[in-house]
Nucleic acid binder design. Structure first.
Lengths: 356, 356
DNA sequence: CTGTTAGCGCGTTCAT
DNA sequence: ATGAACGCGCTAACAG
């Protein structure tokens, strides 16, 4: 007969249904029910008949296992953490999406934490993720270049690791761990080189908060390339754009007021580049690229839609997230691994030969 | 003395530290340790001395409580779920960010699930979130206009609710639940009205998959307004833009080939509007807004940076997410609540008076 | 193959 | 104010 207990009404008890209840309805022990539902360790060692009865009962009761209880019993979970600065920022959104895609393929649930660039919050979330017994966490936010903070982060990471956790860092975080390393330095150098080849000799840089390692790396790359090309960078030729569109727009105005000689500007990310373009075009009445060239960084999806379409350094954002998640899945190795991801210059219409 | 057990070396035992271990180190029972660390039910009923010892021990051992165990014992968690279609889509990123901000303020951890527009996945995630004993979940993805699916979704939601869960929906999902309802109909009507007032009489619409309730609502609003203005909409004047930039770009080319008489296009979201603008400008050589006007929907952050800056219908995206999370916190009420969020027309440079 | 038993780590009575 | 004991729901030995 299709239903072993056709007389038992399917009235769900109050509150979550337990495995025990499923077992009773199927007329088996909870152990058997557990085995039927999760086929522990490979083989389905439950008889066909009982198995079916359990499955039916579970379906009828709309049973789903209690994940916390399962986690406690198995002392392992199926969740991973991903911490970013801000999901609303397309840069992090893309990385998170890449990571989540891979997570899904492997049946992992992801806890997403946004720190809004507050180091304290990063530490806090890491602790909470550890408490959740998250299998691993991807530190996707830029690292903070702060000695004391790095020390505390390392301590927290160590504790997490001692608990069996695994952390993968995106970019430099000053901790020994698996790392996905975007070529920030090389990318910035690429941008400078591109402009140099177009004949530019007077560069400006719209930077970001120096507390972020990502900013430092990109800045280093740009300055290194400038230097090895025999060019300098005056203090007036660089400004902090705050890593947001609006700040960058204002910063660009200030920059041009201080250094009107510039013919090219390297902007350390696309979000800010959008602001710089707006300032040049709408506030200063300068024509890009005829009067001044602009290069961005990241190649966010909207870069091609800006006015003019932005020449920028492409970072494989979704890949960064995906590969970081991959590293999690291939588990921690004896030696921390490093995966270098290359950048690529995407030439669009915001750069051209230097005006003379 | 500052440390009650100064002779005990601080060597963390292998694996996660348990409350029991903290208790032993502090020389108290696990019950006392539990109370000292979490001050159950209001009063901190633990003596100052013992309290300090426990706290010290916990810190020294870098103890964090085992959330799954806690969840089991308390039969409640501190996590909420947020399900979206795709985090990489700025629309969802903004909503998620809004929700996460509020979640953070209240110490809630969020599990983010991306369905990539697969209804099956939505059901699956809902089940998993239920298994996780997530306190509540925000269904932020657009609903699917599918009878059978809606039935299954309702069943899943009911089961979740029976377990004590709480769901709040963003937009129409065909289920009875707390809902944050963006004024999609009114917004689309606003767009049409704006163009009409500028003298346009020949409209085109770049739509999205009709399976999404969001699309249907916006489409309804636009058609209703058209109709009440005494205007019609020929089948050739509407096309599905697939809800992505690329599809929309191709769709726009097709649309204009079929209906060259159009002087205005209403695009059902900004992502597609970016594609439409690209098609008009780069593929078709049409000048916007002089030859043809375009209105988008959502007012994504990049809308102002498009070429030309996009006139669009603003949706308070971050608010949508934040208010949805608010509803979660104010718990389920006897009657499902509905919060209507208004749209607003943001006039920029992609619209102007109709050419004659 | 299936049932019984014993934890997993924590909160929470109930005594003291 | 503190400790002992039990139970949350499930998995993992251990017996049959």
């Amino acid at each position: 007969m299709p239903n072993p207990t056709p007389d038992t009404p399917v009235t769900r008890p109050a509150g979550p249904v337990t495995l025990q209840q499923v077992a009773e309805r199927a007329g088996v022990s909870s152990a058997t029910a557990s085995r039927a539902l999760h086929g522990s360790s490979g083989t389905r060692i439950v008889g066909e008949e009982l198995r079916r009865r359990v499955l039916d009962a579970a379906r009828e009761l709309r049973y789903v296992s209690n994940a916390p209880a399962q986690a406690l019993a198995r002392s392992t979970t199926t969740v991973v953490g991903v911490v970013v600065h801000d999901v609303a920022d397309p840069y992090f959104a893309a990385i998170a999406a890449g990571a989540m895609g891979v997570a899904r393929e492997h049946g992992l649930l992801v806890m997403l934490a946004a720190t809004f660039r507050d180091p304290e919050l990063e530490l806090d979330y890491l602790g909470r993720l550890r408490a959740q017994r998250a299998r691993a966490v991807v530190l996707a936010g830029s690292g903070f270049a702060d000695r004391e903070f790095t020390r505390r982060l390392a301590a927290e990471v160590d504790a997490y690791r001692a608990d069996g956790g695994h952390v993968v860092a995106v970019g430099a975080h000053g901790i020994a761990s698996d790392t996905v390393r975007p070529a920030n330095r090389a990318g910035a150098a690429l941008a400078v080189r591109h402009l140099y080849d177009l004949g530019h000799r007077s560069f400006g840089i719209v930077s970001g908060p120096r507390t972020l390692t990502t900013v430092r790396d990109r800045l280093d790359g740009a300055r290194w390339q400038l230097r090895s090309l025999g060019l300098g960078l005056l203090p007036t030729q660089m400004i902090d754009g705050g890593f947001t569109r609006e700040h960058a727009r204002a910063a660009a105005r200030t920059l041009l007021a201080r250094a009107p000689e510039l013919t090219a500007i390297v902007v350390l990310n696309d979000l800010m580049a959008a602001g710089v373009l707006a300032a040049l075009r709408d506030d200063l009445g300068l024509r890009v690229p005829e009067q001044i060239s602009v290069v961005g960084f990241d190649d966010l999806p909207f870069a091609a839609d800006l006015n003019p379409p932005l020449t920028t350094v492409r970072l494989p954002l979704a890949d960064i997230g995906a590969r970081a998640m991959d590293m999690i899945l291939t588990g921690p190795t004896v030696e921390p691994r490093t995966l270098d991801l290359d950048t690529e210059l995407v030439v669009r219409s915001s750069t051209t030969t230097a005006p003379r």
